[in-house]
Design a protein around this nucleic acid. Sequence first.
DNA 1: ATGGCCATGTAAGATGTTACATGATTTA
DNA 2: TAAATCATGTAACATCTTACATGGCCAT
Lengths: 201, 201
Amino acid sequence: MGQRTELEGCVLGVVWDRGPCTAYTIRRVFQNSPSPHWTGSAGAIYPLLARLRRQGLIRAKPHHAGHRPAKLYQLTPSGRRALRRWLGPPLPEWAVGVPVDPLRTRLRFLLAAVPAARLAFLKEADRKLHEHIRTVRADRRRRRHAGDAFAYLVAEGALKMLNARLSWLREVADEVKRQDRTRAARERLRRSGSSASARSR
Amino acid sequence: MGQRTELEGCVLGVVWDRGPCTAYTIRRVFQNSPSPHWTGSAGAIYPLLARLRRQGLIRAKPHHAGHRPAKLYQLTPSGRRALRRWLGPPLPEWAVGVPVDPLRTRLRFLLAAVPAARLAFLKEADRKLHEHIRTVRADRRRRRHAGDAFAYLVAEGALKMLNARLSWLREVADEVKRQDRTRAARERLRRSGSSASARSR
DNA sequence: ATGGCCATGTAAGATGTTACATGATTTA
DNA sequence: TAAATCATGTAACATCTTACATGGCCAT
């Protein structure tokens, strides 16, 4: 009835996508995702599945053919409707808003750091971002060959975001360096001015 | 001592940026932010400020010149160090990871919706995103004239993200339409084939 | 004087995290 | 046989949200 959380929606989506699957499978999807927003921790997933089950959105079949005891979860018709409602339209306003970006957040306050730390920050961000882009590119390649068009488009979207972020980061780095040079020049001028006035005395 | 949360780091940053300021000022910064990740709710901010105060990172001066009683918060030297530590380097791994995007998340499962709903989703996302871009562009203009270079760069970054997202979304829409056409063509073929076989019978 | 904004806070509740606990099965 | 992985769960804890409570100030 009430609004689904993002994690609930995602779990419904994963159960829809992976057909009948165990809780552990669901956890791994989150653990292996290149986006580190959810950990897929047991403490999040198991209570959530219990919740969805109580609400009649998923049901569990016991499963032990040659395996240890496990439960296979799948969507009920009501669960499929809930997934569609969560997907929208209508989209919640915040879904379209500027995505959170810890790098951008930190950059807002970068002037609080000393110039050397500012440059170190930008250099490390550039390096790690570049590295991360490589893994996401590999992920995209895997998904292209896997044949799921939507999974590929999603990876493509993630990659585009990262590339935009990197190019922005480089512009920022240039701007910061330019500012630091200006500051340094002003500093030199001030010092030479004061030494000149000292000489003239 | 322990790891700061993002909200704690941000609040330290805001207190650093806005000089001595009240809790209400801090709340408004979050409420007016174009990124809707934090609400700046009283229940988040006041306990957080109390926490930072207990840890000696901020201190409060009573303030009532012509005003109602209020507290003005400012960073202590220890708080400034905490802010710098939070900024990094080192950056936490997840800070560089793919930013969460509710649109991308939903798109992953868009095949669970019927074709008409898929198109409606994409159309609404496009419209709202376009609309949102306008407000962020206005925000950027304000910040450019305000003279804070970093605030401007941050708005610029947000805008670049949104533009990349919109262009990705349009590619996705094209691809989805293409697929639906293919599916429809297959369907026509199948039907005409069966009617042909019906005729031939 | 009424409603709206400034300003500070608390209480209840949901959701998520880490850490723990258990035990079977596979792999080195 | 030891370690890693599969698999399920619980407990303690932190953090954030919504909703409520309070009261001063200001404009209509």
